[in-house]
């Protein structure tokens, strides 16, 4: 392969990695929107909390002298997912459920309030400085011609891909096959009717918040390990990017969130690759505007049917 194509391949690998994590966070936005038609602005903060919890658990276990990395990671994952899910559930319980049936703007504001509250709560509890974790999974495969350009795919990047694919497959199966998944789909079609048919809609809605939060915690753990730093403000930017990915793919559509995440990640990487990096956000958000101009409901979103 020539130098140019090796370089392209490397940037594609970088882009797919960023895109996978955007997709994992975007799921939370899109699921909540799909079922109650509202954006959960506190979702980025749940991701940040997931990252903090996994850092604390990993540092704690390492400090206690534990050496088996896979065991540490599994324990961190379980605790982070459990804690973040609790926060996700609490956000729904505090900021959404009491406002069910009111004007759509009101839960939006309460979710923004929740986001600011969680961010500042972590600032107070953990301080506003970067918390760092030493690299846990290092090493990579390299290929290509060392004279021209060496492409590297790190084990961490591969782990991110694998975990993302596994989570996405599990979620798709859950939504399409399980009883609970069926209830979710029913809720998103017609909440009132679902309720009349004897399905506890409150519980189903709480469940979507919990699932979204669990996936955000997975992303929090993976990105925490990959970048090695976390601060109370990471949720804001990550949330913004994931929200963009969800809108790009078609908000409310789960495959759309995955596609949107990957497109956004790859666009960012390729823009930085061939233009000055300053243009990264200009190009990716320009793309978002273009796609929304021609497909207002996003790439895979269903056009909204006016209900009479």
């Amino acid at each position: 392969m020539s130098e140019a194509s090796l370089y392209f391949l490397q940037q594609l690998i970088n882009g797919l990695t960023i895109g996978s994590t955007y997709a994992l966070i975007a799921i939370g936005y899109t699921m909540v929107y799909g079922i109650i038609g509202m954006i959960n602005f506190a979702h980025g903060e749940i991701y940040m909390i997931g990252s903090y919890i996994s850092f604390i658990v990993i540092a704690g276990l390492l400090g206690m002298g534990m050496v088996a990395l896979p065991v540490i990671l599994v324990i961190a994952l379980v605790i982070a997912v459990f804690t973040a899910s609790t926060y996700g559930w609490a956000v729904e319980r505090v900021a959404y459920r009491p406002l069910r049936g009111s004007n759509r703007l009101i839960p939006l504001i309460s979710a923004i309030g929740m986001s600011i509250f969680l961010q500042n709560y972590v600032v107070l509890a953990q301080g506003s400085r970067d918390v760092a974790l030493a690299p846990q999974i290092s090493g990579s495969w390299t290929f290509g011609d060392p004279q021209l350009f060496e492409v590297s795919l790190s084990y961490m990047q591969l782990l991110i891909w694998v975990v993302t694919v596994v989570c996405m497959t599990a979620l798709t199966l859950f939504i399409s096959r399980s009883r609970m998944g069926r209830a979710c789909r029913a809720c998103s079609e017609d909440q009132g009717m679902t309720n009349l048919l004897g399905i506890d809609t409150n519980r189903t809605i709480a469940m979507t918040f919990v699932i979204g939060a669990a996936l955000a915690a997975v992303a929090g753990l993976l990105l925490g390990l990959y970048y090695g730093v976390v601060n109370p403000f990471v949720g804001f930017i990550a949330g913004l990017k994931a929200f963009t990915a969800a809108v790009l793919g078609g908000i409310g559509s789960i495959p759309g969130a995955m596609l949107g995440g990957l497109i956004l990640g790859v666009t960012e990487a390729l823009t930085s690759a061939y233009f000055p990096s300053e243009y990264k956000d200009v190009v990716s958000f320009g793309l978002l505007i273009l796609i929304l101009l021609f497909r207002p409901s996003g790439l895979l979103g269903k056009p909204e049917v006016e209900k009479v």
Binding site: E3, N14, G15, T17, I18, F233, L270, S272, A273, P276
Partner: peptide
Amino acid sequence: FEGVTPGDKDFSALIAKLKK
């Protein structure tokens, strides 16, 4: 001579470019 965005976490694309 390029700028990065403060708060960004991923610089892999930039590093690949420097390497190239």
